[in-house]
Write a protein that binds this DNA or RNA. Structure first.
Lengths: 370, 370
DNA sequence: TTCCCCGCTGAATCTTTGA
DNA sequence: GTCAAAGATTCAGCGGGGA
C-alpha cells in the first residue's frame, strides 16, 4: 500500500481497495485530494419476471440486492448523498465520470447539476455487440450513457485533446464511442466459472476515459469499484487509484486482478480502432433521407420487372413482398439477388441504379471522416 | 381545418397550427384524445440569462450557486407543467417522445419518470455531420438524446417492430440512430435567406419515430411545433397532427410548408407487420379443412421427436398429450414452445412446416377481406 | 495447423388473449 | 380482477471441438 502525504498531515490510501459503504469511506478521506472520480453506481433496474431467449435459454438478469431500491425517492437520496461525498473529495480542478442507463442516468444527471457539478459532455457508449431485444417489444438497448462533469463551472479540468484525437486516427474524438462489451478472457470468472460480477465494464472504455481526462500520477477514485476495471486501467496508464467496494467477494477478485496488472500493457487495450470494411448502409436510409419516395416504382436493370416502394423500405411486386434483395430474387426465380445492383429508378427520365444513392451516402460518410 | 368528433361533444383541431402558450392550449383540448406526442422543448440555455419563464418574463442572469439552483428550479417547473398538460391529453395507450441535449435532457427524463411516464427506450441521434468543437476543449458534441416513454407502465404502446426492422435491412432497430442533421434544401429559409429556425429537426428523424410508434390515422401532437417537421412527416405518412407554436413567424413558415406536403399513397404506407398482428388460426382448423388427417405423425423440426395427431387437434407423444405447444415444450424440456414452427409433416416425402398451412389459411382470409 | 460449425452469453424495466 | 394457455421472439462475438 502506497500512501501520499498531503500538507504533511493526512495520507491517501493509494492503490488499494477499501471495504465498506462508499459514503462513509469517502467522508473519512481528506477533502480536495482526488483528481478524478469514475463512478458506476447501481442502475436501479426494475425487472419483473424471467426473460427467455427465443431458443428458450434463460437470460441471467441483474437481480442482485445492491441494485434494488424501494422508490425513485430512495434512489435519489442515495445519489445525492454519494455525489456530495464525492464532490468534497475532488480537487478544485477535479472532474467526475458517471455511467448509467435510462433507468437511472436522468436522475443522476439532474442530481449532478443540482450539486453544482458542471456538465462538460454526455458520452454515449455504443455497444458493438449488445444483447438483442428478444421479444421484439422495444428497440435494442444498444448503448449506455456517461456524463463527464467538472467539479464546478470554474474548474480547469484536464482534457488531453491530442491524445484522444490520436486514439481516433487523427479525427477529433466525438461524444459517441463504439466499443464492444466485456466478454471473452477479459471477463473475470469466479471459482465456479460463472461471471464474477454482473456488470463488469470493458477496459477499453476506462482506457479512453483515463487517457483523455487524467495525467500520469493523477489520483483516480472509484466508489463502486466492483472487479476493479478502473484500478487496473489506471495502473496500466501510470495513474494512482483508490477503490471502494462493499462486497468482499468483489474486492477479492479485484485484488487478485490488480496483483498481476502491468503498467503500459497497451497491446491488450487497443482493440477498438481496427479498420472497418465499407460501412453498411441500410436501404431504408434512402427513404428516410428523401432520396427515394414511398410509392415510387423501382425497375429491374434488365427491364423485366418492377416493384413499388413502401415507407418501411420494403418492396411490393407481383405476389411478393420483402427487402430489395428478397423481391429481386423471387422475381428472377433465383436463390439470391443483390438488390443494390438489381434495381434502378427513373430520374429525369433516365434509369439510375439505386446503388448510386448508397455510394452517395458512403461518400458523405468518408468525407466527414477526413 | 379538419375536426374530429369525440363522443359527439368535443372536437379536435386536426392538421392545424395553433398559436399561444402550449400549456394553455393543451389544457383547452379534450382529455385522452391524442395517440402520440413529439416534443422538442427549449434546451435551457444554461444560466446565461436566456431562460424564459412560461409567462415570457426573463430570468435574471446569475453566476453563483444559489441562483443557479433557482434557475434549474424554474426550468423544472416549466417542464413539469407542460408534461402534466401533455399527459392529460394522451389516450391510455399513448406515448411521448422528447428530444434534448445534456443541458436539459436529464431534468426532462427525471420529470417524465416523476410524472408517471414509463421510459421505453432512450434513443441516441448520432449526427453524421455534427459541428466540430473548434476550441478543442471538449469532445465533439455529436449526438442528441430522445426519450420514448409510454403514458404509464401498463400502456399497450404502439411499436411497429417489423417495419423498423425492415428499415434496417432486416436487423432489429437499435437505440442509436445515425442520421444527418437538417441541411441543404430541407433547411427552411426566411425571407432574408437566413435559416428560419435555429433547431429545425431532419425529416428522417421524424420518419423513423412516426413510422415506428404510430399507425396511419393516429393523432400526433407537437407542443413546440417550430417549422412543423412533425406535421409535415405526419401528413406524408398518413397521420393526423396538431401543432402548437407560440411564435407567429414560425407558424407562418410551418403553414406554408404544410400546404405543399404530399401524402404517400396508400399502398406505400402499408408496412411489414409481425405475426402478432395476423389473425389467430386455431390449429384444429387444419384438421377440419382436411389439410392434416387424424392419425398422421408429426415430426419435430430438429428430427428428434415425433407425435401422433388426434381428431381434436391434440398430439400424443412419448408420455405426453396436449396441444402442439404443450407437447413440443414437454419433449424439449423447455418452458414454452411455438408448436407452429416446431412441428412439420411429410408431404411427397419432404418435411413441410405446419406453419405453411396456417399461412395458406391466412392468405385465404385476406383475399376474402378484399 | 487451419477452418468451420455449433453452443453459449450479454445492466433487460421484453406478451396477449380468453375464460 | 386472476389464471392458464397460446404463441412470438435474437445479434455479435468468443471459444471449444471436430474435420
Amino acid at each position: 500500500m502506497t500512501t501520499k502525504t498531503k500538507k504533511g498531515v493526512e495520507t491517501l490510501p493509494l492503490n488499494t481497495v477499501l471495504g465498506g459503504d462508499c459514503i462513509e469511506v469517502m467522508n473519512g478521506l481528506p477533502e480536495g485530494s482526488v483528481d478524478l472520480i469514475f463512478a458506476d453506481p447501481p442502475y436501479n433496474l426494475q425487472l419483473r419476471g424471467d426473460l427467455h431467449r427465443p431458443d428458450n435459454s434463460q437470460v441471467d438478469a441483474v437481480d442482485d440486492a445492491w441494485d434494488q431500491f424501494a422508490s425513485f425517492e430512495v434512489y435519489d437520496r442515495f445519489t445525492r448523498d454519494w455525489l456530495k461525498a464525492a464532490r468534497r473529495l475532488l480537487k478544485p480542478n477535479g472532474a467526475i465520470w458517471v455511467i448509467g442507463s435510462y433507468h437511472n442516468i436522468f436522475r443522476v444527471g439532474a442530481a449532478l447539476q443540482d450539486a453544482g457539478f458542471w456538465i462538460l459532455n454526455d458520452v454515449v457508449w455504443r455497444k458493438s455487440n449488445p444483447m438483442p431485444n428478444f421479444r421484439g417489444k422495444r428497440l435494442t438497448n444498444a448503448h449506455e450513457t456517461l456524463i463527464w462533469a467538472s467539479r464546478d463551472e470554474a474548474a480547469k479540468y484536464t482534457f488531453n485533446y491530442e491524445a484522444l484525437k490520436s486514439l481516433n486516427e487523427g479525427i477529433q474524438m466525438r461524444s459517441d464511442w463504439v466499443l464492444p462489451i466485456c466478454t471473452g478472457h477479459e471477463r473475470l470468472k469466479d471459482e465456479h466459472g460463472d461471471k464474477a460480477h454482473p456488470t463488469q465494464k470493458p477496459e477499453s472504455l476506462l482506457h479512453r476515459v483515463l487517457l483523455g481526462t487524467t495525467n500520469p500520477g493523477d489520483v483516480v477514485l472509484d466508489p463502486f469499484f466492483g472487479t476493479g476495471t478502473t484500478g487496473a486501467v489506471a495502473r496500466m496508464l501510470g495513474r494512482e487509484f483508490i477503490g471502494i467496494e462493499r462486497e468482499a467477494a468483489y474486492r477479492k477478485v479485484a485484488e487478485k486482478r490488480l496483483a498481476s496488472v502491468r503498467k503500459y500493457d497497451r497491446a491488450a487495450l487497443e482493440v477498438s480502432t481496427s479498420k472497418r470494411a465499407e460501412p453498411r448502409v441500410p436501404f431504408g436510409q434512402l427513404i428516410e433521407r428523401g432520396m427515394l419516395r414511398p410509392g415510387e416504382e423501382l425497375l429491374s436493370m434488365n427491364g423485366r420487372h418492377k416493384a413499388k416502394l413502401r415507407a418501411d423500405g420494403t418492396l411490393v411486386g407481383d405476389d411478393v413482398k420483402g427487402s430489395i434483395h428478397q423481391v429481386g430474387a423471387a422475381l428472377e426465380g433465383a436463390p439470391s439477388c443483390n438488390g443494390w445492383t438489381y434495381w434502378c429508378i427513373k430520374r429525369d427520365g433516365k434509369p439510375v441504379s439505386i446503388d448510386v444513392f448508397r455510394q452517395q451516402i458512403r461518400a458523405e460518410m468518408a468525407e466527414r471522416a477526413n
